[in-house]
Nucleic acid binder design. Sequence first.
DNA 1: TTTATTTGCGCAACCGTTTTCGGGGGCTCT
DNA 2: AGAGCCCCCGAAAACGGTTGCGCAAATAAA
Lengths: 335, 335
Amino acid sequence: MPAVDIRSLAKHLNLSPGTVSKALKDSYEISAETKKRVLSLAKKLNYVPNAYASGLRKKRSKTIAVVLPEVADSFFSIAINGIESVAQQKGYHVLIYLTHENFLKEKTILNDFKSGRVDGVLISVTRETIATKHILELQSSGMPVVLFDRIVDQIETAKVRTNDFESGYIATQHLIKRGCKNISYLSNSKSLGITNERMEGCRKALEENDLSIKKNFFIECSNDEANNYKRIKSLLSQKDCPDGILVSIEKLTIPVYQVCNELKLNIPGSLKVIGFSLSPSASILNPAITTITQPAYEIGEAAATLLFKSLEKSNFDLKNEKIILPSVLTIRSST
Amino acid sequence: MPAVDIRSLAKHLNLSPGTVSKALKDSYEISAETKKRVLSLAKKLNYVPNAYASGLRKKRSKTIAVVLPEVADSFFSIAINGIESVAQQKGYHVLIYLTHENFLKEKTILNDFKSGRVDGVLISVTRETIATKHILELQSSGMPVVLFDRIVDQIETAKVRTNDFESGYIATQHLIKRGCKNISYLSNSKSLGITNERMEGCRKALEENDLSIKKNFFIECSNDEANNYKRIKSLLSQKDCPDGILVSIEKLTIPVYQVCNELKLNIPGSLKVIGFSLSPSASILNPAITTITQPAYEIGEAAATLLFKSLEKSNFDLKNEKIILPSVLTIRSST
DNA sequence: TTTATTTGCGCAACCGTTTTCGGGGGCTCT
DNA sequence: AGAGCCCCCGAAAACGGTTGCGCAAATAAA
């Protein structure tokens, strides 16, 4: 199985490698006759050009990078689908990197992109990402960067996200309409823009309805599941227990339901629950949970589309692009 | 921001590019003093070698490909985590490709790997994949290939999977122990080795217990959700309704629960349900569903580890490697 | 001191493709 | 017939690192 390269093709055809290359690219310099001969032999021998040689020469890798905190929950897996489908259609390849919410890893990964390995970057930053030097540096090296979902406001580039503030507001309004007076908000990290926006939306709804904002009802969970469970249990065990709860992180739904089960708290009788979720099993929980669903696929799709626009048109300015795709409220039995 | 290459480094240091290259690789040919100077400047200027240049010369891309049917359900997303963590640790990059269960796409994608873009391939094949020429061809071009989860028996190479046959057997045994006499099996595609093995395991358990195997209890669902729902409903509506059901595909759990809800079928009273699933929400379904859980992360990890072994040791023979990681039965209230 | 050996580095080919430039041959046009 | 033009194609220089080889200087051995 001797690797068939452009040289061997040329030899077979009594042509020069340059001519073969042009013929394969359908260059106007080459006669129709020759093109036909070249194409035919290339197909017959199943010639596949060496990606590294042409990448080196053309200074284009036909590859984009997707940098994610993790891929465990459904949002990012679905987003990947959206990204990959656009990339495949454009003939691009997709490198995937997981930061595991580790800022240092994010820095290392982004720095490596100066190797020319990728033509553009889609990134959803870490919880820990406050400093932005690594991203700015990458940009100033000429790399197009599109932020999605987990945005950093300070960075001037295209951003694709959902309406987190409004979602938080709408979710809370919904709870209020259902009669809730004491509403609790569950999130993970305060440093994360997203959950903050949702929280602000929640606060705004509370304020507009003259409902009290109790500090100890706004709980910031961690990655420590046991501890989260404990805190949720203590929240729901107290006398002044909330009658409505907004779960801003999908995976926190589980301990909430578990605690309710343990404490024999009736949903939606004693407690109404609404959660940010993309899981299709929302409908078969008992009770089926009312959800705010992010358009994950569309976010990935839109982010990738923007990136490719900037790769294809040099005059396209990412800085002007902000896309906000609305989340969807699906009312079920939990409220 | 003038791109810093090895030539400019060399000029700064009054050395030749070759020497700089060797110094960076800690070659024995270079004095400690020079190495220090080189390393120091390289760090200061944040030199990142061009991946395409070195890839071309060394004929190594430091990249592997992961080819998946889809990434929507949790198995593959978790498997990606396992793969990525090993790759990152080894300094490799991960390209991801989705076939969307389309054999032609799989063929096209694999053929492109002859471009030298990747050093090795991890693949979980399509439902439609029966012919294996495309994989054999890739192998014979010298590309190491590791199959995982969705295996093709005919191909001689490393395979990592779970014990599907036993899982089907164990799940069925569990239903039988719980008193089920009429057991139904739900899968998607018959052409898929995995679901067939699970089915065979199921059949064996039925036979061993002298239970009848009713053809119309073995249902092959499709991607048409509405139709799946209809078929499940008609299965559970009939007089001779099953009293136990083994759901071999995670996403089919939803219509099953929905139908039971609609038909007021009590789980586990009238029907006991066991499902293959990785979803953490299994525990908060009502009733919490008994599951067979595949070790997705470990499968990805093991597959990647095998691939890297073959990349690092030329004498390592993938053909001899078969890894079977056991699934776990978690008994909950649905049985 | 002479010879042998080691040490440290430079030279230049090489990886496979792309692309600029130029030139030969055939054609048209005067 | 000579000048000009177009049509095809080849030659060769990139692209940026890597690596085998050779060579000079320094050191060790004789």
